[in-house]
Amino acid sequence: MSTSPSPDVIVCPGGPLLLRGEHVIADEDGVEHVTERPVSALCRCGKSASRPWCDGTHKVLPEKDRP
């Protein structure tokens, strides 16, 4: 096992961005959202109904529209 710290920001291919820890996220409109879980998933496809959070919608998008 590596001894370097594990990443706190993880890009999931075709899916969300995982964020470990507490963060305040400002969305496109400047509205702030506070993370509420040990790891949060930020939508990257733009199609989630719960933005800024991922709600799994990326999985039903055609391949070309996935992040």
């Binding site: 993880i10 879980r37 790891v39 998933a41 959070w53 799994g56």
Partner: peptide
């Protein structure tokens, strides 16, 4: 579970 499991599925698989 809409939001929680959107995280958990990534954690569980990856």
């Amino acid at each position: 579970h809409v939001e929680a499991d959107a995280v958990h599925e990534q954690v569980a698989v990856r």
